[in-house]
Computed example of a mutant assay.
Amino acid sequence: MSESHIRPARPEDDDALGRLDRDAWSPLHSVQSRPQPPYDPFFDSNHRPEHYLVAEEADGTVVGYIRLVAPTPLASNRHVRQIQGLAVAESGRGRGLGRALLRSALQEARRQGAVRVTLRVLGHNKPARSLYESEGFAVEGVLPGEFLLEGRYVDDVLMGRGVSG
């Protein structure tokens, strides 16, 4: 992954991230329908640039992102961060970019004072589950048959891990 680096997202990444998100869409990880034109902006009031880290090639091409946010606005939940999206462009797969984004998000969570990071992943998304497990995430709950995707009921798997200091 020497030709790529991870950096905070910027407002001008909107178009590139929108394209990447549409190109990476799959029922393996998305519970929403395939995006159709006209496309909404990638960033909005709930999805701000400061919530994202991006993987960028040496030539400036954005090839991945991860979204890290507080799971709720509650003060009692302030010590937790949640990963709510991870995508890598086809051109960036197999190079460790997903792992690099995940590790960068864990470092950012620690920097923000979090002691836990959680996420949700679809039960049939074995590549993502394997990645998360290899980085110390454990299954903490399963919502059986939570989503009906392409005629199949799919589990929603809740995973989490501590963030060591």
Results as ranks from 00 to 15, higher is better:
residue 124 H to K: 05
residue 63 V to D: 01
residue 164 S to N: 12
residue 125 N to T: 06
residue 15 D to G: 12
residue 164 S to L: 12
residue 134 S to C: 07
residue 68 L to Q: 03
residue 54 V to I: 06
residue 57 E to G: 09
residue 79 H to G: 00
residue 112 Q to C: 11
residue 30 S to L: 07
residue 3 E to T: 14
residue 70 A to V: 08
residue 82 Q to W: 11
residue 19 R to I: 15
residue 116 R to N: 08
residue 8 P to M: 04
residue 95 R to N: 02
residue 133 E to I: 05
residue 106 L to Y: 08
residue 41 P to T: 09
residue 159 M to F: 03
residue 28 L to W: 04
residue 62 V to E: 01
residue 71 P to N: 03
residue 126 K to C: 11
residue 50 E to W: 00
residue 15 D to S: 14
residue 51 H to Q: 12
residue 56 E to S: 14
residue 13 D to K: 07
residue 48 R to S: 03
residue 142 V to Y: 15
residue 148 L to D: 10
residue 87 A to T: 08
residue 20 L to Q: 01
residue 114 A to F: 12
residue 142 V to D: 06
residue 23 D to A: 12
residue 102 L to K: 06
residue 119 L to G: 01
residue 25 W to Y: 04
residue 21 D to V: 06
residue 120 R to Q: 13
residue 46 N to H: 15
residue 151 G to Y: 05
residue 31 V to Y: 01
residue 127 P to S: 03
residue 129 R to W: 09
residue 58 A to M: 11
residue 98 G to C: 05
residue 35 P to K: 00
residue 129 R to N: 10
residue 123 G to Y: 02
residue 97 L to A: 04
residue 25 W to P: 09
residue 92 G to W: 10
residue 5 H to I: 11
residue 24 A to N: 05
residue 94 G to R: 07
residue 54 V to S: 02
residue 62 V to A: 03
residue 23 D to M: 05
residue 117 V to N: 01
residue 41 P to W: 10
residue 59 D to S: 12
residue 47 H to C: 04
residue 113 G to W: 15
residue 74 L to V: 12
residue 139 V to L: 01
residue 37 P to V: 08
residue 160 G to T: 04
residue 57 E to A: 15
residue 141 G to R: 07
residue 147 F to I: 06
residue 135 E to P: 07
residue 47 H to T: 11
residue 126 K to Y: 05
residue 16 A to S: 08
residue 13 D to N: 07
residue 31 V to I: 15
